[in-house]
Structures are given as C-alpha cells and as structure tokens.
Amino acid sequence: MPGPSKEQFVAAQKARAAALYSLFETGFKGFEKLVQLNVEATRASLAENQAVATEAVSVTSPEAFFTLQSRQTQASNEKLQAYWRHVNEIMSEAGSEILATSEKQIDEYVRQSQAFFENLFRNAPAGSEALVSLWKTGFGAARDAGNATYENAKSAARQAVEVIDKADKTVSAKA
C-alpha cells in the first residue's frame, strides 16, 4: 500500500508553517495598528494638556476655571469614547481577518486530509475491507467531532464580536 511520498509530506508541513505564520502576521498587523493608535492618542493628549494648562494658568476667576474644567471633562469623555471605538474597530477587523484566514486553512486541511485517506483506502490491499471500513467509520466520527468543535468555536467568536459591537453602541448611545 503506497503511502504519501516524502515530498508530499514536506510540502504539507511547509504549507502548515506558512499558514501559521500568516495568522501571526495578521495578528501582528492588528497589534501594530493598536500601537500606532496609542502613539497618536498620547501625542494628542500631551498637546491638549499643554494647551489646557496654559489656559488654566491664565484664568482670572473661579467661574472661568470651573467652566474650563467642565469643558475639558466633556471633551475628555468624547475623546475616550472615540479612542475605544477605534480600538474596537481594530480588534474587530483583526478578528475577522484571523477568522477568515483560519476558515480557509481549516477547509484546505480537511480537503487534503480527505483526499489523503480516500487515496489510502483506494489503494488498500485485497482482504482488508473490514479494517478499511473500521478506519472509515473512525475517521468519519473524528471528522464530525472536529466539524462540530470548529462550528462551536466559530459561533463563539462571532458572539464575542457581537457583544463588543453591542457594548460599543451602548456606550456611544449614552454619550
């Protein structure tokens, strides 16, 4: 019974490694966006704080000081909400990209596995029909269990994204 060739095995391992690093790269792109957002937010915050401090020093009455403080509190709340909306967008985008990439890779892996086992079963020696039937049943059950686990994980990921989106909309609506 001929099995997979060494070249096929090496090619499959290379494909899996490339797929894994593709996921890492997608996650890292999201991380880079978060870092860039934080750098920009920090830069803007420093500039705004300097302007507010300069204005606070020149305030001549308590009423003007409290007006400035109230205005800054409202502006800070709006900026904080905008910041978290950006974080949510980045995380949702990265999560969607990772989910889409994972789906493609899992589909390809399942397709290749099925083709491998079908080829293996087709080339089984005569008289091994009972063993082949047992293996098919076992692999079918494993495939079904894997599909169920995959669907549950996909559903949980989608629900998490929906919860984050709903929380963002709730916070935005209260503002």
Rank of each mutant, 00 (worst) to 15 (best):
G3C: 06
N77R: 03
F28P: 00
S70V: 05
P2Q: 03
F65G: 02
Y83V: 09
K166L: 01
S172C: 02
K154I: 00
Q69L: 11
G95A: 08
S70R: 15
A124H: 08
H86W: 02
E162V: 12
A94I: 13
V132L: 00
V59H: 09
T26P: 06
R122P: 02
V57N: 13
A167C: 11
T67H: 05
A130K: 14
E7H: 09
Q72G: 10
R143K: 02
G146C: 12
L120G: 04
G27Q: 06
R158W: 08
D168Y: 03
A145L: 13
T42G: 02
R43A: 07
S45T: 07
G127P: 01
F116P: 00
V59T: 10
L131M: 02
A167D: 15
N147E: 14
L134S: 12
E97S: 14
L23K: 06
N123C: 00
S45W: 00
V87Q: 09
S113D: 06
A130Y: 07
P125K: 01
S22R: 09
G30R: 04
E162W: 14
Q159L: 10
D168L: 07
Q112G: 01
E25Q: 05
V35F: 13
E48R: 15
S113N: 14
K154F: 01
A126C: 00
F139R: 02
A44Y: 08
T67C: 04
I106C: 04
A19C: 04
I98S: 13
L99V: 12
T60I: 04
A175G: 10
E32L: 11
K136W: 00
N88M: 07
Y109I: 01
E25W: 03
L46I: 13
V59F: 12
A15R: 05
K79V: 00
F28N: 11
Q74H: 13
E55F: 07
R158S: 11
T149Y: 12
Q50M: 15
F31L: 08
A12K: 02
N147H: 07
P125A: 02
S102H: 11
F116Q: 02
T101Q: 10
D144R: 08
A44K: 15
Q112N: 13
V132Q: 00
K104F: 01
S5T: 15
Y21A: 01
R158I: 05
Q36G: 15
A126F: 05
Y21N: 14
A124F: 04
K169W: 10
A12C: 13
S61L: 04
V132D: 01
A173W: 10
T149E: 15
M1W: 05
K14S: 09
G138R: 12
A100P: 00
R43N: 15
A175E: 05
A160Y: 08
A126M: 00
A17F: 09
A153W: 07
S172L: 09
I164S: 12
A160D: 07
I90F: 11
A64F: 07
F31T: 14
F28S: 15
P62Y: 13
Q36V: 05
T170P: 04
A64V: 04
T137H: 11
Q114L: 06
A56E: 11
S76G: 03
E118A: 04
L68M: 08
F116N: 07
Y109L: 06
A41Q: 03
L80G: 05
Q74V: 09
L120S: 05
Y83S: 02
R111A: 12
K6W: 14
